[in-house]
Design a protein around this nucleic acid. Structure first.
Lengths: 239, 239
DNA sequence: TCAGTTTTAGTCAAAGTGACTTTAACTAAA
DNA sequence: TTTAGTTAAAGTCACTTTGACTAAAACTGA
């Protein structure tokens, strides 16, 4: 992404130096079940940088904005290229444009965030240079990507309380206990099962199916379905 | 920002043509009192375009991202230059990057939004080409700026319900009725004065002063002060 | 058959909400 | 100087929501 020689005839005075680079990156979240009494936790995939700057460090998947794609399409394609993932939920998070995010050329990053189901997450093209990590307690990442992840986690916690985010981390049908696990993982605290159930029963867009999850060790829980819009809950500006 | 000849040995194939232009624009809101029984309404300043494209149409204040400034600084400076305003509240809203927002060169706009008090608003450098307009029912604007304003209004309504936005539209001290006016203007519905008062009494960051607003026609209302943080209520990513 | 565990329903007090009434404080007109 | 009109501020009341808790129902594995 080094854009070195930059020859533009017009408006030179407006740019003291080179125009900033424009990149799209994505924070992808998935829920990984916690083993044996442990709480489930949020995980995200990172890619190892194979070039300078920050060669060898892990970073969010991303790349330059391509000319013929919308911002969101660029994010989606880049995700597919690097990780093989195609998240159903993909929304803009924030534009990071500090002066010294990258050591050489200035880079403005428009960051998206995505949710994938646990089932999809295991189908990632993992390799030497692509791996999933637990979202909190990450090692030092390239650029300001630690800050970006922290911000995404903060937004996640906030949206959880009044949003439909949880369902994007789950499959087509799910038990109420699974929804509760998502809440407990994101909010990092226990939630009373009975009260949580009562709330979801009164909630919109949660529909009971006639099926039950079999194969568990105890009473089979009923499966539910989310009937709300699967897209981000804004009047999503397409442009 | 035409980035024509781009001489980088690598990744040439990834960019089919020029790299997109990067611009910063701002939606600035102020509350204008409604005359005589009418509800107060939200207003915003626009600038008339003096160049193509969309020459003669009104648009959000903005300009290209300059090399030596952060995104937010660019927004603030541009506001000062064009309108003379220096809002205390300035936060990123959204990045708009559709392919055909501008007829010729592609432009990615990172849009900020701001709140100013009614007292500040009247100090705007208004002119032939800078004027305040009522936020809803705007005429056709340049680019996709109608969509952007609509999105900002939607975000405003959402943030209002659980946020501290209202106080950025008011002065240092204010009456509870003035806060209620902000809510009624933004949410576009009447709010019961007694119940609204009760809520604010229990709310954090609202402190009663020992002063009363004099000069009204009826019982003088007590003045209150907002003691919460004046900055946007995120862990505001500075970069 | 029974102990153990999870699902599901229900109870109860405390807190919050919406609609409404009442009293206090001030201005302006009679 | 009194009084009608208006807004500020407090209170009432029924209803809903919430948090903490209890209990029954349903299933597995010993």
């Amino acid at each position: 992404m080094d854009r070195l020689a930059f020859v533009s005839p017009a408006n030179v005075s407006e740019r003291l130096a080179q125009a900033p680079d424009l990149a799209i990156s994505t924070v992808i979240f998935a829920l990984r079940p916690g083993g044996d009494g442990e709480r489930a936790t949020m995980w995200l995939p990172l890619v190892r940088r194979i070039r300078e700057p920050f060669r060898g460090l892990w970073a969010l998947p991303g790349g330059p904005l391509t000319q013929a794609e919308s911002l969101q399409d660029t994010a989606a394609r880049n995700l597919a290229d690097t990780t093989g993932l195609a998240p159903k939920y993909l929304e803009q998070l924030y534009a990071f444009g500090g002066l010294h995010r990258s050591p050489s050329q200035r880079v403005v990053s428009i960051v998206y965030w995505a949710m994938v189901q646990a089932g999809e997450a295991v189908m990632t093209h993992e390799s030497e240079n692509v791996r999933w990590f637990k979202a909190d307690g990450l090692m030092d990442l390239a650029f300001d990507h630690n800050q970006i992840v922290d911000y995404a986690l903060w937004r996640l916690r906030n949206k959880m309380t009044y949003g439909s985010i949880a369902y994007h981390l789950l499959g087509e049908t799910f038990t109420l206990a699974q929804v509760r696990e998502v809440y407990e993982a994101v909010l990092d605290r226990t939630v009373d099962p009975a009260n949580f159930r009562r709330q979801l029963k009164h909630a919109q867009h949660i529909e009971a199916t006639e099926e039950f999850l079999q194969g568990g060790k105890h009473r089979p829980p009923r499966l539910y379905r989310y009937t709300g819009n699967t897209a981000p809950d804004s009047p999503a500006p397409a442009s």
